[in-house]
Design a protein around this nucleic acid. Structure first.
Length: 473
RNA sequence: GGUCCCAUCGUCUAGAGGCCUAGGACAUGGCCCUCUCAAGGCUAAAACACGGGUUCGAAUCCCGUUGGGACCGCCA
């Protein structure tokens, strides 16, 4: 027995990689990295009618975006059908599994009947001790589940969970079309891949005793289990498409930083004292199941947004340039062929970093720096581009025009001189200028903004504002 | 219906029988800073689901009730 920790994330490509899946992947990843173990990616695509290549690609892309790098795989179960077949034959030969000739429609009918009568829908075992094969039907293979005693799942998060064997169903391990089913393939693969810890969603806890019996039947040691609590939507039901974004990649499109999402998700059900923000290294260092909670958690978009803004502030401006560029193009702030001076752009970004909760917001707010013609917000225009503020605009234009060194401290002096001359408050000069330059009543500090916009554009925009007031009384 | 799981502010959580007058974070209100908006600082309001035990002492241990969730497929 090796000491090495081997864990796996095993999504089925019947849908996109969603928040819940990512959290499972993340906890597997953290546990592996914390223990210097191996993290395996396995695609559970035995349901051939619902699995698609597109989903597989999206899962992989999502994992890569979040930088949840795996060490082995992706393995695909559809490549391993002969392995399952071999194990199934073995169980058949040993009498631990048997052919079942019941038709899916028959089973479904019996299930419904049981439900109507308020009984537990369980396979009645009518093919369990068949002496002769039934002709004219292609059988499925069922696992012969022990019916006495109880099974204890020793869960790293839940503790001991006990199940009565009499309640366990003889489940189908091979369909009549020869393809294997989930509860069988997981066990075979986890055995085959030497998985030491099965870390997965809470929804599998009820499957676990059945799987334990398959391990036993196959003669293998049972791995350790850790069942993670579910993530709920705002209505406290299981997170689903109704609750907004389906794919994690949608979060990428919405301008979230991968590390912010990871940080948010890890705190859903896990904690480390009062700490809220973690680097990836800290996460790996501190992670343990002892600090994983047992109860399900409601997904809270507001806190994610807050964390995202914290990560934007933390990110080096240099990196932010590359991150925001696709959004500048997508939101048509710049044309694809237009090359911006990086040094200049980083100055602009610096003023907007702590004002942006997402990369989209950052891209939008960068607009007034970049475009030639800004548009006035109607309310802002009505309030500040009027007769009352006209003298200030005329004077500040004059003062700024006279500046040789167009830098923030000099610009400030110019403003102060106008303020003094009119014996007014700075806001009365700054706000109309802000509207003239940015089109809005909110922006970063106006002196900095003017420096970054530059003298030429500043004067041009001031003149346009002055003219606007002249035209419209 | 059966089985299993869970239960601290609106939400995420700290809490391992006395450090609890229940702490932190998001969101919300107020104040400070201030050229606006943010960021930041300070501050306010806000929770141990309920009922029984055990104990000198319970958010913490036990039992029950209630509430929520998951699963009961030839889906995974």
């Amino acid at each position: 027995m090796s000491e090495e920790v081997r864990v796996r994330f095993a999504p089925s490509p019947t849908g996109y990689l969603h928040i819940g899946g990512v959290r499972t992947a993340l906890f597997n990843y953290l546990y592996a990295r914390h223990n210097k173990g191996t993290f395996i990616l396995r695609i559970e695509d035995t349901d051939r009618t619902r699995s698609t290549e597109e989903y597989i690609d999206a899962i992989i892309e999502g994992m890569k975006w979040l930088d949840l790098d795996w060490d082995e795989g992706p393995y695909r179960q559809t490549d391993r059908f002969d392995v399952y077949r071999r194990y199934a034959d073995k169980l058949l030969n040993e009498g631990k599994a048997y052919y079942c000739y019941c038709l899916p429609e028959e089973l479904e009918r019996r299930r419904q009947e049981a439900l109507v009568q308020g009984k537990s829908p369980k396979y009645d075992g009518r093919c369990r001790n068949l002496k002769e094969p039934l002709t004219g039907r292609i059988p499925a293979i069922r696992f012969r589940m022990p019916q006495e005693g109880e099974t204890v799942v020793n869960d790293l998060i839940r503790g001991k969970v006990t199940f009565e064997n009499a309640l366990l169903d003889d489940l189908i391990i091979m369909r009549s079309d020869g393809t294997p089913t989930y509860n069988f393939t997981v066990v075979v693969d986890d055995v085959d891949m030497n998985i030491t810890h099965v870390i997965r969603g809470d929804d599998h806890l009820n499957n676990t005793p059945k799987q334990i019996h398959i391990y036993n039947a196959l003669g293998y040691e049972v791995p350790l289990f850790a069942h993670l609590p579910m993530i709920l939507g705002p209505d406290k039901t299981r997170l689903s498409k109704r609750h907004g974004a389906t794919s994690v990649l949608a979060y990428k499109e919405m301008g979230y930083l991968p590390d912010a999402l990871v940080n948010y998700l890890v705190r859903l059900g896990w904690s480390y004292g009062d700490q809220e923000v973690f680097t990836r290294d800290e996460l790996i260092k501190y992670f343990s199941f002892e600090n994983v909670g047992k109860s399900s958690a409601v997904f809270n978009p507001e806190k994610l947004l807050w964390l995202n803004s914290q990560y934007i502030i933390k990110t080096a401006t240099e990196n932010l340039i590359d991150l925001v560029m696709p959004f500048l193009i997508r939101e048509k702030v710049i044309n694809e062929d237009r090359i911006l001076n990086k040094e200049w752009l980083s100055k602009a970004i610096n003023t907007l970093k702590e004002r942006s909760k997402t990369l989209i917001e950052l891209a939008y707010s960068l607009r007034f720096y970049i475009v030639e013609d800004i548009e006035y917000d109607e309310k802002a225009k009505a309030r500040f581009l009027n007769e009352r503020h006209l003298p200030y605009l005329i004077d500040i234009r004059k003062e700024l025009e006279a500046l040789n060194n167009f830098i923030a401290p000099e610009i400030e002096k110019a403003f102060m001189s106008v303020v003094k001359k009119h014996n007014t408050k700075l806001g009365n000069v700054a706000q109309p200028v802000r509207v003239a330059i940015t089109g809005k009543t909110e922006s970063p500090g106006i002196f900095e903004v003017l420096e970054i916009i530059g003298k030429e554009k500043t004067l041009k925009r001031l003149e346009k504002a002055i003219k606007t007031i002249g035209i419209k009384p």
